[in-house]
């Protein structure tokens, strides 16, 4: 592999651009395929599928190996709450880079979240600068409609692969009504995971964090395609 190719692959990763490295296992020249150069590539169909599934592998019937690189998933957490304190270190371990947004300055303190990117701003101010995208897990935990609702509208717009919101079924039913009245399409509302997290009987903040991360992992590994 030429060094220039490795550099281009690494640059695509750090810019959060999807890219596929095509390696000839018989030792021929390798090439990097991106969304811009995909059309007309001899392996266009296979590469398109690989980009959708995020799976590396040998293209059937060929000696071409695809190293598929989709952007590393991000995590935006709305709410500097107790659950977030458990969620952040666990999310980091899995490979997410978590950011917390909470305008309530009593919650969003560096003492409660040492070393964490913490934005003590309203979602409308904080979110546009975060470049939320398809490869972002979005979790609303404040339980306060004034904060969670506008944040969720932003997550719908950016089509995040995971959108979860804390709250009982009853709370969630009221949320659906409010967001619907606010113009959120039914298919977006149906995507919200609420009550947030897999149903594993979690009680403590750390257990709830585990259930949320399990659900996020499931969405990432099984759903993003």
């Amino acid at each position: 592999m030429r060094l220039a190719l490795l550099s281009a692959l690494n640059a695509a990763r750090s810019d959060r651009r999807a890219a596929v490295l095509v390696t000839d296992l018989d030792g021929g020249a390798a090439r990097l395929v991106t969304a811009e150069t995909l059309a007309g590539d001899p392996l266009e169909e296979a590469i398109r599928t690989a980009l959708r599934t995020g799976r590396s592998g040998v293209v059937e019937g060929t000696r071409a190996f695809l190293t598929v690189q989709v952007p590393p998933a991000r995590m935006v957490i709305i709410g500097a709450v107790h659950i977030s304190q458990a969620l952040v270190p666990m999310a980091r371990m899995i490979g997410y880079d978590p950011v917390i947004v909470d305008p309530r300055t009593a919650f969003a303190t560096p003492e409660r979240f040492p070393g964490v990117t913490l934005l003590a701003q309203w979602p409308d101010e904080a979110l546009p600068g975060l470049k939320v995208d398809r490869y972002t897990a979005f979790i609303a935990l404040t339980h306060d409609p004034k904060i969670d609702d506008p944040a969720l509208m932003h997550a719908f717009e950016k089509n995040c692969f995971y959108i979860g919101a804390l709250g009982s079924r009853k709370t969630h039913a009221r949320r659906i009504e409010r967001l619907g009245a606010n113009g959120a399409p039914p298919e977006a509302l149906a995507r919200i995971k609420a009550p947030v997290g897999l149903a594993i009987g979690a009680i403590t903040p750390a257990e709830i964090a585990v259930s949320i991360l399990a659900e996020v992992t499931q969405a990432w590994r099984q759903g993003i395609a």
């Binding site: 060094l3 490795l6 550099s7 690494n10 990763r13 750090s14 690189q69 590393p72 371990m93 490979g95």
Partner: peptide, 16 residues
């Protein structure tokens, strides 16, 4: 724990 970022980034750094 090293991620793919670190791994391929390290290869590039070594080569450079």
């Amino acid at each position: 724990l090293s991620t793919d970022d670190d791994i391929l980034g390290q290869a590039e750094a070594w080569a450079k």
